[in-house]
């Protein structure tokens, strides 16, 4: 009995990809720009988001979902901006997935919104495999983490759209070599956009706000 080969050529879609695709279609239909943030714990995702929400809040409808293993601390912090914020407590799960986003949005997402931010669990490994239906994925790294972080965690940089170097007000104290860090980022993801910011002092936020303002237009263009 000789085996017979039949050609199939079918892409294996992960269940998460299917859910993410549905989410993306829904976001596009309602005109919301969705931005996710990933980084290691302590890189300053929440501080960055705090300032972002506060600066956007007067002019735009903004909301945020924040993921953590435990506590509502981040949601409480972010709510002070006046934005609509919901905490996703993952228990022991090390990342957010598309189903968690869908579940969190159930009966919560208002009709009129310009921006939805999703702060992932602090982790540079697992979130890289999970599409959340976002339009833009930011990977943050702070000046105290070492210039070679992109080389150590290439996959997350490779799946992200923009690299944000945070805490640049501490660059000198940390002896941070920005040119080297940017070279490493470009090496793992050629052509990646890079922002340098201080969430505390506000440096770099003009450029970030301009990038956000042009986002809906970019998403609408084919």
């Amino acid at each position: 009995m000789t085996p017979r080969f039949v050609e199939v050529r079918r892409d294996v879609l992960k269940q998460n990809d299917i859910t993410a695709r549905e989410l993306r279609a829904r976001f596009r239909a309602t005109g919301i720009s969705v931005i996710s943030l990933v980084s290691s714990p302590g890189s300053g995702k929440t501080a960055f988001l705090e300032r972002t929400l506060a600066e956007l809040q007067p002019r735009y409808g903004v909301a945020a979902l924040v993921g953590d293993l435990a506590t509502e601390n981040d949601a409480l912090r972010l709510r002070r901006s006046g934005a609509l914020v919901k905490q996703i407590v993952t228990g022991t799960v090390c990342h957010l997935d598309a189903a968690m986003i869908r579940c969190a949005l159930e009966g919560w997402l208002p009709e009129q919104l310009d921006f939805l931010f999703i702060e992932n669990v602090g982790n540079l490994v697992c979130p890289s495999s999970f599409d959340l239906g976002e339009d833009l994925r930011l990977v943050l790294l702070s000046v105290t983490e070492g210039e070679d972080k992109p080389l150590k965690y290439p996959t997350i940089f490779n799946t992200a759209d923009v690299a944000v170097i945070t805490k640049i007000d501490l660059a000198e104290a940390a002896d941070f070599d920005r040119a080297l860090c940017e070279r490493n980022i470009q090496s793992v993801r050629p052509g990646m956009r890079i922002l340098g910011v201080s969430s505390k002092r506000g440096a770099g936020f003009d450029e970030w706000m301009a990038m956000l303002a042009s986002l809906p237009r970019e998403l609408k263009s084919p």
Binding site: T2, P3, F5, V6, V8, R9, R10, D11, V12, K14
Partner: peptide, 11 residues
Amino acid sequence: ELQVRALEIAE
């Protein structure tokens, strides 16, 4: 790629 290329079938 993450693609099922072919199947080996027992006749």
